[in-house]
Each structure stands twice: as structure tokens, then as C-alpha cells.
Design a protein around this nucleic acid. Structure first.
Lengths: 237, 237
DNA sequence: GCAACTTCTCTACAATGTAGACTGTAGGCG
DNA sequence: CGCCTACAGTCTACATTGTAGAGAAGTTGC
């Protein structure tokens, strides 16, 4: 699928241009971003595009495939360019990028996390696997043995995804009303059973996700580095 | 369908006894375990219980609430008993327990991960929050300041969830056919674009999730311990 | 036996994903 | 130019879903 030839309708995709997979998917994404996953029905998306819902099936085999497409589209926003020779700072940067990506598309995160659970590795959208490949590559280039690279990747990506989920779970709404809502919610918890949680309400409210991610990454990476045989600086004078 | 008359409420989840929330939820759980989340429709669950689908609404306000109930039920299987005074080994044990729990109910994991994303903290099922409270308690008892306890919790639980997701994503099917399927899947990847991943196929096949989890936990916990002011051994002679 | 409940059932409806047949349009070939 | 084929988009139809609302059946206290 070397679909790259037509940069045709960049200016005004207005109303009646021919549909294309990219148009469909990006409209789907903006819909999801704006109104959540449930709003993404075939009918609704069709309406958004001014087309019959059935026309979508030319561009995605079914709803699940459409969701996969959206995940892929989002992950494509993540650029992994090996400009920095230091694998640690490289991974750190990617982590922050992915975090910001998730914050930009919070409604897509369930997809990113959930879809792979029901799709074997080899059958996933390629865009989904590209970060994995690139990070492996990055680590191997940095001097890790392939097996160890996989090792590092798993610990790193595991923590990263976990952190993102955690952070989004505490977020839920925009930070302005966050504190109020949070307190309101916590208020309902039985004090006898949840003293610690309730006491932490004010602290919960100002959660610096970026700082915590950074610290976790630091711990993990240095821990991994200390534990794995890495030929010091790579041969790149 | 023999309509056995079991007046025993606790022993056997009989056939014609009065319904109860526990019966409904546990039947839902076994259904999900056996056939996946999609199989859990109101009609199907009703049929499984020999009751009209509508009767379920006495025990769960709607389908979402039912899913929450199932999450809660699963998380209740996780026992957090502070028998060990060492917080690190405590957390390590819990991590392994949760991992096994997830492997026992893989189809429920999407729920565990996804539902909190759309439910503010205070409105979640209590059973879902109990681990959080108990772990905080455990850490505070071990000498951490509440803020630091939260800190540790986040890094710990983040990594833990991430790892579980990772592991389940690579699993997908039972380990017997895993290797075959995996290779088959990877085979489809364009070699030019995914050389590293394809080369790692054999290694991917024997993934020791338990060992990797343990190592990650070790790194994280010792890193956290080194970084936070902890009054050594707690005052417990 | 009656009355106030709770529990369970029946019927009905709107929304969803999607199959299958159809219409329109664009281009190639005589 | 007229016809044929391929493909983009549409229309109709249907099975399946969650759930509202009214009622039936069963249980309990007097």
C-alpha cells in the first residue's frame, strides 16, 4: 500500500470530493476526540462526511477495522527519529512525546491499550508495530544484544503505558473542575474504609504527571542499564 | 436442563433459587471468562440464569454497571493482607498475585483498565479502590509520608498494569500454539521495515512474564527506596 | 384472606452493524 | 459515438443490542 501519490485535495476537502481512507480515518479521529468512542458509529461518521454510512465499508472492512485505523493514525503522530545517540535520553524523549500524544487524544487511549489484546502481533496494523521496531532498532544500535533490547523495551513500554493509564484515570475531566469533582467524589467514600485515600484528596488534585513519568523512567532506565551488559559508549566516534 | 431444587444459597449456584447480585455477577464473570466480553449481553446472561433478561436490571442499573460489578468481583480476588512487615516484599507479592489474577481472567483485563478511564475516582465501585487504599496504608505503615506513599503507589501500580497489558498482548492465545501463530503472524510483516521484530520471533515466543515482572519490580522498588526519605525499619520491635 | 412489598416477565422500541442488490459515473475499446 | 466493465456510493432490509413501562407472580406481615 504505497498510498502517497495523491496530495490532491489538501486545500479544501469541502463537501463533495471523492472519499479516501485518510479522509475517513481522520474524520473518525476528530469525531472521537470531540465526542468519545461511543459517538463513532457508522451512521454518525457517514453523516459527518455527508455520505451514506455504507460507503464507509469501502475503506474499512468493519467497525473494528475502523477502530484499528484510528489507533494507527494516532500512533503515526509519534515520531521516532534517532537523532540523539544516547539511548536513555532518546527513550525519555519518546516517553514524554507519547504521554503528550495520549493527553491530546485521551479518548483513543482505550483503543491503543485494548485492541492489541485481541489481535495477535503479526496481524496488527503496521503503524502500531512501528514504534516497537524502531525502539528495538534504537537499542540494538546503542549496543544492546537483541534479547536485551527486547527486555529493555518491555520494561520501558510497560511502565510508560501504565503511567499513561494511571494519569488519565486520575484526570477524567479538565483540571479546572478536577479538584472540585475529585473532592466531591471522594466525599462519597466511607471514611472508615478509606481514610488514607480521603486524606490524600488535596495531593491527588495536583498531580504532576510529567514529573512522575520522568522520575519513573529515570529509575527504570538506570536500573536496566546497571543490570545489563552494555558495551559502554557505542562505536560512533 | 434438570431443575434441581437447591435451597442452599452458598454452596451451589443452583437453577431456580432467587437471584442475587452475587449470583448474577459471578455468572457474568464465568461467561466472560469462557467466551469473552462480547458474549456478555443481557439476553445471554438472562438465558444463562434461566431468567428473563429484564430481571437483571434489579441487580445492576444497566450494562455498564454490570461490567463494573464484574471488575469489582475480580479485584476482590486480590487479597492484600499485611502479614509481612517488609513493604518491598509485600508489594512484590501483590504484584505477582495481580499478574496471576489477570492471567486467570484475561478477558476482564480490558475492563479493569478501561472502565476507570470514564469514571471519576470517587464514583468507582468500592472494591476497585480497596487495593489502592490498602497499598497506601501499607506504605504509610512502613514509614512513608502519605505523599511519598502515593508517589510509590503510582510508579508501582503503573508499571504493574503496564506489564500485565504487555504480557497479555503478547500472549493472545494459549502458549501451545502461541509459537506457531506468532511466527505465522510475524511472517506477514514486510522484512524491510521490520527486520528486528522478525529476527526476535523465537525469543518472543518464550516470554517469561513472571521473571520480567519481578525484575522490573525490583528495579523500581529499590530505585524508589533509594530516592525517598524512609525512616529505615519501622518502629516495630 | 387481604394488602403491600419485591421479584420476575412480557411487549415494544429505538439504535446499532452490516448483507445484498441497486444506481450512477468514468474510462477503455470497438 | 455506443457499448461494456469496474468501481464509488446508495437504498432497503434485517438481526441484534440495551432498555423503558406495564403488568404478573410470588412472598411476607397482619
Amino acid at each position: 500500500m504505497s498510498s502517497e501519490e495523491h496530495p490532491a485535495p489538501p486545500a479544501a476537502p469541502g463537501k463533495k470530493a471523492r472519499l479516501s481512507r485518510e479522509i475517513v480515518l481522520s474524520t473518525a479521529l476528530t469525531l472521537v476526540d470531540a465526542e468519545g468512542l461511543d459517538a463513532l458509529t457508522m451512521r454518525r461518521l457517514g453523516q459527518e462526511l455527508g455520505r451514506d454510512p455504507m460507503s464507509l465499508y469501502r475503506y474499512a472492512a468493519n467497525r473494528a477495522a475502523l477502530l484499528d485505523g484510528v489507533s494507527e493514525l494516532v500512533l503515526n503522530e509519534l515520531a521516532i527519529i534517532p537523532d540523539d545517540p544516547d539511548w536513555q535520553s532518546q527513550l525519555r524523549r519518546i516517553a514524554h512525546d507519547l504521554r503528550l500524544l495520549a493527553l491530546r487524544h485521551p479518548n483513543v487511549v482505550p483503543l491503543l491499550v485494548t485492541r492489541p489484546l485481541s489481535t495477535p502481533l503479526g496481524l496488527r496494523p503496521l503503524g502500531t508495530l512501528r514504534p516497537l521496531e524502531q525502539i528495538l532498532s534504537l537499542l540494538i544500535d546503542a549496543g544492546f544484544a537483541p534479547v536485551d533490547a527486547l527486555h529493555v523495551y518491555r520494561a520501558y513500554y510497560g511502565y510508560l503505558y501504565g503511567h499513561i493509564l494511571n494519569e488519565l484515570q486520575e484526570f477524567v475531566v479538565d483540571p479546572e473542575e478536577n479538584e472540585a469533582l475529585l473532592r466531591l467524589g471522594l466525599h462519597r467514600l466511607p471514611p472508615k474504609e478509606f481514610p488514607r485515600l480521603r486524606a490524600l484528596a488535596p495531593v491527588l488534585a495536583d498531580y504532576d504527571g510529567m514529573a512522575e513519568l520522568d522520575e519513573g523512567i529515570t529509575i527504570l532506565l538506570s536500573g536496566l542499564a546497571a543490570r545489563l551488559p552494555l558495551p559502554e559508549a557505542p562505536a560512533k566516534p
